[in-house]
């Protein structure tokens, strides 16, 4: 019973991360956009849904939609300005934006509760299911449903002409432009859609934990989601999801071990060790399987692989 409780708790988190990793995969894996501001867009989604459902009393489902809309609008504004930048500059910019978003959450006390965050975020269906195992399992089912829906939607997108254009722009922008594909428009679309998924991930997190604070959205979150994508294999949705489960598994197990093994005074250093551990894992994966556990395939469109009739 305890194992079931722990398992559902673990899988809930892993699935929430999977939603974020799917969003990042669309941006990096398919469009080559180096977004190092994942935590910022997750925060926007989490706060948007939390505020809409607490302050305004909206139903949770509308809160989630609001989270996606808020993250999407923010991404659109950021993207208009930042997507002109190439690789490393885009990374620096998005990182800075994520830090700003986190600082706003910390300091705009009237709106976000400042360092105290937002409490008593409604947990959907908890009126019927209580707060125990039954609710955990129901929420897990809900999150898995969201992962499934995101997966289905993304597969439709990327395994077709739209995904093919993204891949082409990622590989050679000048060649894609010479074939009539406007790079900026597609980049912006991929950036906004990816950030909407990150925002949705934030909302799923907020309503699972029931409490959010600025310290939930530190750059280490961005690092985790990136680690998941690299380990699982970017350019493949299966890689994003598998990476989320695997890296989150290693993260929680190593966290538990360090708590048990290290004396109280060394706990803070233990947390840093976790980051090192994941870093080593990434390095090992990159050496052994440069494309991650599930690398991308050469064929993009599901229709291109079929044999001509």
């Amino acid at each position: 019973m305890e194992l079931l409780a722990y398992g559902s708790f673990f899988l809930c988190f892993a699935s929430i991360f999977a939603v974020m990793a799917l969003g990042l995969n669309l941006q990096w894996g398919f469009a080559g956009l180096f977004n190092v501001g994942v935590a910022g867009f997750v925060a926007i989604g989490a706060y948007a849904s939390a505020l809409l459902t607490t302050s305004l009393g909206w139903p949770v489902a509308l809160g989630w939609i609001g989270a996606m809309a808020a993250a999407g609008i923010a991404a659109f504004i950021v993207g208009l300005a930042a997507l002109r930048l190439r690789e490393d500059y885009l990374a620096i910019t998005t990182f800075g934006i994520a830090v700003v978003i986190q600082l706003v959450a910390l300091n705009a006390q009237a709106l976000t509760g400042g360092p105290f965050g937002i409490q008593s975020i409604p947990k959907p269906l908890s009126a019927w299911l209580g707060a125990g195992l039954a609710w955990n399992l129901a929420y897990l089912a809900l999150v898995l449903g969201v992962v499934g829906l995101a997966w289905w939607g993304l597969e439709r997108l990327v395994a077709g002409p739209w995904g093919r254009v993204l891949r082409a722009i990622r590989e050679d922008e000048a060649a894609a432009a010479s074939l009539g594909k406007p790079a900026r428009r597609y980049r912006l679309q991929a950036f906004v859609l990816g950030c909407m998924l990150m925002g949705l991930g934030g909302a799923l997190y907020a309503h699972f934990v029931g409490y959010i604070a600025p310290e939930d959205f530190l750059p280490v979150l961005t690092f985790q989601v990136w680690a998941m994508l690299i380990v699982g294999g970017s350019g493949r949705n299966l890689g994003a999801v598998a990476g989320a489960v695997l890296v989150w598994g290693i993260w929680t197990v190593s966290g538990g071990l360090l708590r048990d093994l290290l004396p109280q005074a060394e706990q803070a250093r233990g947390a840093a060790l976790q980051v090192v551990l994941i870093g080593v894992l990434i390095a090992a994966i990159l050496v052994a399987r440069p494309r991650g556990l599930f690398g991308e395939r050469a064929t993009v469109s599901r229709h291109a692989a079929e044999d001509a009739t």
Binding site: R167, A168, E171, A176, K181
Partner: peptide
């Protein structure tokens, strides 16, 4: 020439 190296030859053409 600027092929899209990681894409199949067929999809290089299907893109256009």
């Amino acid at each position: 020439p600027k092929p899209f190296p990681a894409m199949t030859v067929l999809e290089n053409v299907m893109l256009a």
